[in-house]
């Protein structure tokens, strides 16, 4: 059976000869990303500790690298790259939209309760 796999990643920058080769290529990429995360997590460079939009730059880097990994797992391991556009959008945008909403609500409220704990008359440290 002949299957049409799209064999290029990084928007066509790297093109593999076969599907098997692409799988190993993606593995190497994911391993490098994980290694970067672990090294940053262990050494925690002082320069990345500055805050940026309410969070440390280091944490932003972690989250972005995670999303990059998630993209390649979904697109190449789960073959989302080979599905039709409508299926892709149906799955991805539904999840992203709902998850963003969930995160916004819960983190917003968590931050509010924290402000009550610190500025209100509730004693927690005893």
């Amino acid at each position: 059976m002949a299957h049409a796999h799209k064999l290029e990643i990084f928007r066509g920058l790297v093109k593999f000869k076969s599907n098997t080769q692409k799988i190993w290529g993606v593995l190497i990429f994911l391993t490098i990303v994980t290694a970067i995360e672990v090294v940053l997590g262990i050494y925690k460079p002082e320069s990345l500790m500055a805050k940026f939009i309410g969070m440390k730059i280091l944490n932003w880097i972690f989250i972005i690298l995670t999303l990059v990994k998630a993209y390649y797992i979904t697109w190449d391991f789960m073959h989302m790259r080979d599905e039709v556009k409508a299926l892709r959008r149906m799955v991805v945008w539904t999840a992203i939209f709902l998850i963003l909403y969930l995160i916004f609500i819960l983190l917003q409220e968590g931050g509010y309760i924290e402000s009550i704990y610190t500025t209100g008359y509730i004693k927690t440290d005893f």
Binding site: I99, I103, L106, L107, E109, G110, I113, E114
Partner: peptide, 9 residues
């Protein structure tokens, strides 16, 4: 997200 909520709290 619930973990994030508790952590922000």
């Amino acid at each position: 997200a619930a973990y994030g909520f508790s952590r922000f709290k």
